[in-house]
Design a binder for these strands. Structure first.
Lengths: 174, 174
DNA sequence: ATTGAAACCGTCCCGAG
DNA sequence: CTCGGGACGGTTTCAAT
């Protein structure tokens, strides 16, 4: 087994505590990188690839979860293989923009089986809804018959998505 | 390395035009649901919760991977805990919209450490880039000093994200 | 905080229904 | 396709450093 790399020494002066944000050494960063690529990577392999003992790797992962850096382990499903090859973004404006109207709408949108994600945004649009549907006709009916019937939505713009690409998240950017 | 599994023969010669869409029975759907919530759910527990034997559950999951319904198991990291609490969507128009310009730009955007996701969209905007940054100043500099210096980007609109919410993907929508 | 070793337990292959 | 048994191997705990 290889000797442990030179760990970055803890800075003598700790910065202001940024909430749950903790300092990540290079081992933590490698673990995050690897588990983002494969959440089911056996702990033994993980340990080997980051250069620590299995028990240490186990504790590191637990610590990352406790500190909130890892929020979940999830299986990624392909909406195309699921029979919903068409994706779109629905940008909607809600008026009046009060929480009494926004909150029920948020719950409604998240309750739609077509919804993949919901962005609460600033700007002329208030909501951005990411949906996946079987075809254009389904999208059309979804918008007209289930979304636009809600009177609090005063404007809606549909943007078709050709492709979605995701990146693994790196550590704090420079 | 847990890359894509080896090719496997298509066991049942069912309908040919259903694309990769396979028929999902209720067991498959339950498995997808549970593994989206927790990719590390032990196979034994998974089997118990869907009501089959562990060996059966194992084969179901493998089949779901082979058929492309499950594309990956990933750890989800919290960008806020990572020190990048500010998210934004950058909508950019690229002109001329040729693949000779688009492809390098796509590679560039995906290479940025700030990038979380990239949407290739239809409409007046061509790209939608989801980024996470430490603060507004970082975002400002990212846009001015690294993105807008590229001459093929003729327009850019920034939308701040207050909150992102994701849903687990259900089976084929009715 | 990290480690090695041991006990535990889930995974996974296989033969059968 | 499903199931149970059993060998294998990984996970997890713990005392020590």
């Amino acid at each position: 087994m290889a000797a442990v790399d030179a760990l970055s020494p803890q800075s003598p002066n700790r910065r202001r505590d940024e909430g749950v944000t903790a300092e990540l050494d290079s081992t933590d960063r490698k673990i995050l990188e690897l588990l983002q690529k494969d959440a089911r990577l056996p702990n033994k392999d993980l340990a080997e690839r980051v250069g620590v003992a299995p028990s240490t790797a186990l504790e590191r992962v637990r610590s990352l979860r406790r500190r909130g850096l890892i929020t979940a382990f999830r299986a990624e499903v392909d909406t195309q293989a699921l029979g919903r090859p068409l994706e779109a973004l629905l940008a909607m404006r809600v008026r009046p923009h009060t929480s009494q109207l926004v909150e029920p709408l948020r719950a409604f949108v998240l309750g739609l089986p077509e919804t993949i994600a919901l962005f609460h945004v600033a700007g002329p649009q208030d909501f951005l809804v990411h949906v996946a549907v079987p075809d254009a006709d389904h999208l059309h009916r979804l918008i007209l018959e289930r979304i636009l019937v809600r009177q609090e939505i005063v404007h809606l713009e549909t943007t078709l998505i050709f492709r979605t690409e995701r990146r693994t998240v790196q550590g704090p950017v420079s």
